[in-house]
Write a protein that binds this DNA or RNA. Structure first.
Lengths: 147, 147
DNA sequence: AAACATTATTTGTCACGACAAATAAAAAAT
DNA sequence: ATTTTTTATTTGTCGTGACAAATAATGTTT
């Protein structure tokens, strides 16, 4: 077994993810956006399908339910979304986009684009394809392992 | 621009990193180890060079100084390391391994191995090489961008 | 030497990860 | 119909990101 931390994929990917998050925070700070990447992710899934429940958001974003509750809480506080108990099943809480989010949609997409451009500088299309394919393979391995 | 979150490398890598961390926590829980991956990382660099300073640890682990302070704090509390002010420069704090860590070194390395084995199941050697090469490229892009 | 700048570390605050335990409502079992 | 189980969400606690501000010690300038 290779004991060099640098050669352990898990560690390499974790470290890279941290660096990427740091870089995105830089972009956000520069643009003075008052929103975090994890809040974007929730908004993203709502743009795909408005009115999703907390649980459905958690599943799609592969996040902890408890944490999604709190992310949505913040989005509510900033008036980007509202929560409403489902009429059919009052355990369920649906989340709806508020008009105010339209104003930041473009900014958010530009952040994603900027971050992506920096990361992929000099990485060819074919490499990007290879990367994605392998990452998906690994992701599936882990999802399977987590049941 | 591609607005599908799944196709943004940054997001894919972030998500995968979260899944990997979740999986490692599972392994740790199963083995009843009382230590976290980020604490391992600090120990790892101390195994490479005992007596490193907080700052040097932060640099090598690519972590925030403040956070390394707190990670080391916990390791001290668990008696895995000790801290000692440098004699030459009393601003500097050197961290030294305690004999107690020897007992968990193997466990830690086995965790890394287990996690890696799950992740890389069915990923060929050549794919692993491709993956690492591209990840390094991206890492360098981002490090450059962060100055 | 005294004032100022730099460097190493610490402390505080917030966001979000994990997990466990608590609620509340619906569904299933008896 | 009441009890039990399951499901959706929330709350609490802890570890670790990020960043800013505070300390403390060293270096530099004048």
């Amino acid at each position: 077994m290779d004991h060099n931390l640098e050669n352990i994929v898990n560690h390499r990917i974790s470290t890279l993810a941290v660096l990427m998050k740091r870089q995105v925070f830089n972009i956000i700070a520069r643009k003075e956006l008052k929103i975090t990447p994890d809040q974007w992710v929730v908004l993203y899934f709502l743009w795909q399908e408005n009115g999703l429940s907390i649980g459905e958001l958690a599943k799609r974003a592969k996040k902890d339910f408890a944490n999604v509750t709190r992310i949505v809480e913040k989005l509510v506080k900033m008036d980007y979304v509202t929560k409403k108990k489902s009429e059919k099943d009052s355990r369920v809480c649906n989340v709806f986009l508020q008009p105010k989010v339209e104003a930041i949609k473009n900014d958010i997409q530009n952040c994603w684009k900027e971050a992506s451009d920096v990361a992929l500088k000099g990485v060819t299309q074919s490499e990007q394809k290879q990367l994605t394919d392998i990452l998906i393979k690994i992701e599936n391995n882990i999802l399977l392992d987590l049941e």
